[in-house]
Structure formats: structure tokens, C-alpha cells
Amino acid sequence: MPGVISGIEGELRSNGINVESIDLDGDTVELIYLTAFPDVDVNHQEMGRALNTFIAAAEKDEWEPVRVEATVLRHQEDVQGTWYAEPEWFRQYIEYDISAEEFSARVIDTLSEDEP
């Protein structure tokens, strides 16, 4: 029987993010996930669920914000797009220095979508 997936990976999965791989070591989180919406555009609600997982972990002092770099796959070897979030954005949001709309806009501005 496989082991229980816990921590941020487990939380991402419980929030509907199909994690292909995640590297939490170092100065950057490298997240690769398989989208449930394999269209041309990256699904913003799915991005939000992933980001909210990191925000919740930071609010509970279970994760110290670092840069999060995400790669979104339509299926194996087919990249739909990439996005990232800077650690100071997480901190500013948690400390109420920026709104949810501002946080989202910053992340969406980093979105790079590959043509199918």
C-alpha cells in the first residue's frame, strides 16, 4: 500500500491539483501539475486553488514563502503554460498590504501560455 501524501503536496491534491511533481527544497518551489482543463488557456480558478494552498500553509506557519514556479501540463510532455508567484507577494497578501485582486493580477501577469 502506498504511503500517505501529506504536507503541501497532500493539500494541493486535496484541493484538486493533480501534482505530477513538486520540489519544495531550496529557494524556489517547482510545481508541475496536470490540468483538469486541457484547453488552450490555463484555467485561472485552478491556479487560484494552487495559490490558496500555499497561502493557507503560510498563514498556519507551515510554509515560509519562496518563489513558486508552476508548469501546467495538458498531458505528459504537453505544456499548457507556466506561471510564478514571488515570495513578497505572498507576504504582502497575508499582511493585508495587497488585496486578493492585486495578488491575482500579479500572478496572472506572469502567465505564459504555449500554443498547442
Rank of each mutant, 00 (worst) to 15 (best):
E69D: 15
A100S: 08
V40T: 11
P38T: 00
E101Q: 13
P38M: 01
I5H: 08
E30P: 00
L12R: 04
S14V: 05
T53M: 08
R13I: 15
E11T: 12
V19Q: 07
W83E: 04
D25M: 10
P87Q: 04
K60T: 04
D25S: 14
I55T: 09
G7N: 14
E59S: 11
E69V: 09
Q45C: 09
G3I: 12
A36K: 11
S99P: 04
E9A: 03
R13N: 02
G3V: 10
E95A: 13
V29Q: 13
Y93D: 01
E102L: 09
A50L: 09
N18E: 05
E69F: 13
V79Y: 00
I17P: 00
R49T: 07
I22F: 05
F37E: 04
E64Y: 12
E30A: 04
D39M: 13
R74P: 07
E9P: 03
F37Q: 03
G16R: 04
F54S: 04
G48F: 05
P87R: 02
F90P: 01
K60P: 02
R67N: 11
E101G: 05
Q92C: 00
L34M: 07
Y84D: 09
V40W: 09
T82F: 07
F103C: 05
I98K: 00
S14Y: 07
E59M: 14
A58L: 06
N18D: 14
G7D: 12
T35K: 00
S14C: 05
E77T: 11
A50E: 08
S6Q: 14
E59V: 11
I17K: 05
L12D: 01
A50W: 10
I8A: 07
E59T: 06
L73Y: 15
Q76H: 07
I55F: 05
E20S: 10
I5R: 14
R91D: 09
G48T: 10
E9M: 06
I32A: 12
I94C: 00
V40N: 07
W63T: 02
P87L: 02
P65N: 12
V66M: 12
A56E: 12
E102K: 10
E9V: 08
E46N: 10
Y33N: 01
E30S: 11
W89H: 06
G26V: 05
D78F: 03
Y96N: 11
E59I: 11
W83M: 09
D41L: 08
W63F: 15
D41Y: 08
T53E: 06
A100F: 03
I55P: 01
Q92F: 06
A57N: 10
H44I: 14
P38D: 01
A100Q: 10
L51D: 06
A56I: 03
I8Q: 05
E77D: 15
S99C: 03
I108A: 13
Q80E: 14
T35E: 01
Y33C: 00
Q80F: 04
K60F: 08
W83K: 04
S6M: 15
E62H: 14
G3Y: 12
V79D: 02
D41T: 11
L12G: 02
A56Y: 04
E101R: 13
A100T: 07
I108M: 12
E30L: 09
A70T: 15
T28S: 10
E20A: 13
G48K: 07
G7S: 13
V72Y: 05
Y33V: 01
T35D: 04
E86W: 08
N52K: 11
T53L: 08
W89S: 00
R13C: 12
L12K: 10
